[in-house]
């Protein structure tokens, strides 16, 4: 057979594509369940880490069921939609594209040693791709217990640093409401003149050099997501502890 003829070349390419496509499709679908399980447990792990509970993936499910006492799917007006399961029914990536009134906003209520925490999932855009995370509020629904961030494709060493513990620690004890009770969120700021984040009432954390757009994405996603929870947060008694 002439290996240099056009017919052979096209034939070979077509056959190759068919074989490769079926092998990859087969692998992807047979590993799908295992992968989804990993992602599910990681989500639990992330949620737990915002309230200071560190666990490996295997232990995540048990601790999650112990500490997370309520999983609510809120409407935009703050009421609870009982028909929706907050953990598994809401895919935030798809949800945030909908109109605010059609969205359901997941909220996890945790109870650790008699203290209550409210954990709100976040999702927004970084520089290259999606960023997401969780923010846990203390019982006053104002100060932050902890945050966790993750990203799809931010630059390693720059934007990707938002996933580092030292960056996430900066958010602890910051307040999302200002003294007059307005929701201001937390800004990742390049000008806050507070590199060690000792001022916990300025609603700002120190930015990462070289990660301006990712940092802005973090600020935007916090305020954008939190505003939808305003009715819920306000409805259940709000303390401005300042």
């Amino acid at each position: 057979m002439n290996r240099d003829s056009n017919g052979y070349t096209f034939g070979f390419a077509a056959a190759m594509v068919l074989v490769v496509a079926s092998v990859l499709a087969f692998t992807a679908s047979s590993l799908k369940d295992l992968q989804a399980e990993n992602v599910r447990k990681e989500k639990m792990q992330n949620i737990l880490s915002t309230i200071g509970i560190e666990t490996d993936r295997e232990g995540a499910e048990k601790l999650f069921n112990t500490y997370i006492v309520e999983q609510l799917a809120l409407r935009n007006d703050g009421s609870v939609d009982e028909a929706v399961d907050a953990f598994s029914d809401i895919k935030l990536a798809l949800e945030i594209k909908k109109d605010a009134n059609d969205q359901r906003f997941p909220l996890y209520v945790a109870n650790v040693d008699a203290a209550t925490y409210y954990i709100i999932p976040l999702r927004g855009a970084g520089l290259w791709n999606a960023i997401w995370g969780y923010i846990a509020l203390n019982e006053d629904k104002n100060s932050i217990k902890g945050v966790v961030f993750d990203h799809q494709g931010e630059t390693a060493g720059l934007g990707a640093e938002i996933t580092q513990q030292w960056f996430m620690n900066r958010f602890i004890d910051e307040k999302i409401f200002n003294t007059s009770g307005e929701l201001v969120g937390i800004s990742v700021s390049k000008t806050n003149n507070d590199p060690n984040d000792t001022d916990k009432d300025d609603h700002e954390v120190d930015a990462i050099s070289g990660a301006t757009i990712t940092g802005d994405g973090v600020s935007d996603m916090i305020i954008e997501r939190l505003q939808h929870y305003l009715p819920y947060l306000k409805a259940n008694h709000l303390a401005y502890n300042n």
Partner: peptide, 11 residues
Amino acid sequence: NAIPNRIRIIV
């Protein structure tokens, strides 16, 4: 011995 020479890099 089956790979067409002209698209070998692609293969």
